[in-house]
Design a protein around this nucleic acid. Sequence first.
RNA 1: GCCGGCAUGGCGAAAUUGGCAGACGCAAGGGACUUAAAAUCCCUCGAGGUAACACUCGUGCCGGUUCGAGUCCGGCUGCCGGCACCA
Length: 799
Amino acid sequence: MKYNFRHIEQKWQNAWEEAGIFEAQDNSDKPKFYGLVEFPYPSGAGMHVGHIKAYSGLEIVARKRRMQGYNVLFPIGFDAFGLPAENYAIKTNTHPRVVTDQNIKHFSEQLKRVGFSFDWSRVIDTTDENYYKWTQWIFLKLFENDLAYRDKTLVNYCPSCKVVLSNEDSQNGKCDICGSEVIQKEKEVWYLRITKYADKLLEGLDTVDFPEAIRVQEENWIGKSKGAFVNFTIDGVDEKLRIYTTRPDTLFGVTFMVIAPEHPLIDTYADKITNMDAIKAYRDECQKKSEFERVNLVKDKTGVRIEGLEAVNPVNGKKIPLFIADYVMMGYGTGAIMAVPGHDQRDYDFAKAFGLDIIEVIKGGDMSVEAYTGDGEMVNSDFLNGYTNKKDSIERMIEYLEEKGIGEAGVQYKMKDWAFNRQRYWGEPIPIIHCPNCGMVGVPYEELPLKLPEVEQFMPGEDGKSPLAKIDSFVNCTCPKCGGAAKRETDTMPQWAGSSWYYLRYIDPKNDKALADMDKLKYWMNVDWYNGGMEHVTRHMIYSRFWHHFLYDIGAVNTFEPYAKRTAQGMVLGSDNQKMSKSKGNVVDPLEVVEEFGADTLRTYVLFMGDYGASSPWNESSVRGCKRFLDRVARLADNLQDANVSSLESKLHKTIRKVTNDIEDMKFNTAIAALMTLLNDFEAEKKVGRDQYVAFLKLLNPFAPHLTEEIWQYLGGEGFLSVSEWPVFDEAKTIDATVEISVQVNGKPREILSIAVDADQEAAEKAGLALQKIAKLVEGKRIVKVIYRAGKILNFVAK
RNA sequence: GCCGGCAUGGCGAAAUUGGCAGACGCAAGGGACUUAAAAUCCCUCGAGGUAACACUCGUGCCGGUUCGAGUCCGGCUGCCGGCACCA
């Protein structure tokens, strides 16, 4: 048979869709499998081949599981709110709805032409009002449970996009969307109290199957630390200066204190401070800096001594100087630290820069060179002297602090509450009403969805307000509680909102009574396998796990954790080994590959190119190699015979085992290599048994579904190969009677020996020594030891 | 700086618990077929060495454990990702 992909792909895609063979059944006696891939943001640029690789992993697993008799839910949707559509709308004066619909259409076509076996009857779109109705519903629940609140704080602000950004959205001090420098601005913003779920998020990690690297990353993001709060005093005033430390046992080594430039203490005691001008100047300097500059660029320690105030170390009554410095953050701990220059490098650098005392309290380092952060015997520490175990000395000190009432044990998290709003149009309206009498009131549930109003202008207001603020008919409303005149919240939710619960909606995408029906949730949850990018492991994953934990607490879902298993794919790099990007001009469009080589070749290549979890560069010659492989598969269809070729049986069954196992381990590259090897073996024979060939086609089907369906039909097969039964290997046929083992002398491989797989050591030794080369090598030497591992090696240790 | 991960031919990469390094594919070279090209098929393909074998070296670098190390341990170097003056 000749493989003409242009003639067959559309045909089979239509046939599958008409037959609905990839639609999941809500009621089924089959075991269920819920495979989830991260739904795309439908950008104007369309998909690139990286998307294809990202979806192909679970695509193969889903197709294989269907053939193995599972009821498979493998859905797709679109995470369509977000700034690019809105920025494009501003530029071209096209409504984001129109742009988004176009992009979704384009993405859908691309996905369909690659032949993904998604259940298109369940497609979702986060910007659909029937979807965001439930995003708003979840927000109201969070609000009712005191997990959504407003607070005035310094926020990352992008002067170009005119929006407030979360830390996560402004990494490296640059706006994620436009790349401009982020500045600090005081603003009242919405927060979600994710920190309240910090411990649950940590606990949950013990109940799921995440790779170690992913688990560690999430743990580090949450960043739980154990330590102590200690109350220092300020000399001459009735004020406690509270600090947090992970090393309370170094308290006797404290020689100064540092507070964040924004610390309220400064304003409280402005009249006592004699160098307010210098302090204010330093403060202003810090305000200008983005968080990036503040924490990254400043290698030299800067700061200003607070003249007129002195702190007192509560454990020894010593007076110590007080500084402000930008290396201390208001947002972590208490915004103040005790400085132990002997045993913390940052404090050491600061002490050196300002000529401050350095006291050694842990033996083992050289105070004249650097801070010593290792373990050792406690010295210069009164009652702690002589302690050598860190844990004991910390415990003893906390005991002392609690006994004297000057401090107590405590924990801190690195994770901050989630800044949850945008001053933009293209997002879910926050369903809150501000009433002058009643304060903040939630929009009544029966009024959801609170629809995005039609607007003419998408430009944000100059003050960073949402475009919604300009629409009087939207803003003005009556308070649902008292009936008086009130105003609506005009901020919208961040893009993370819609993607925090979408996996639940796939289960029941059209439900208008609940986000999903509980019986259906009970059938489908958890997501059995979630695959996506490494870059989403800390943000999206933590946010959605937080929402899920909350939904579990209010009884809206039936499981504690949403994702039973998580894996991550590596990137597809450009042929120049660089990240694909428009500016580098190295982006590969999947449709172009489909046009030139066919969808099956594209699918096979993205998985054959290397380890699924690793990044590897695109190489068109290698794409051609995969095409060649499929051509040869098709040609072989004309070389069949009725009877199986017995010499191929063992090879076939080993391949069935390998492909079956490799797919579950996401080792797609070696699965494909095994299929190529088997094809080579097939071709080496003059004829191949029809059944043997069909088993091969089934193994290949998840990778190259169009071609294998076509060949199946060409051979007169009935029904779809895509839903036929997955081959099962016969264990007995995979066991060889004889094996080739390496015969070594002193650990060096010298010969190959063909021997019965179950030969005992005596027989192996005899056979080994019978080999001419081996006999020569051990001649005249004494064999001191023989190591034999049946089926593996035979090693003569000779002297 | 901290936390992860990685480092194997000209290239992408393989290699159960330590047991024949380089499967599979690409590129390259040679040959067959062809008026020619494409396509296809056959052979070679880590380095040195040899007529061919043999043999020696070889998985980023230095050392160790072991009969045996790409794999384990200690110490480096480089690259990628994440977090980042986190107290």
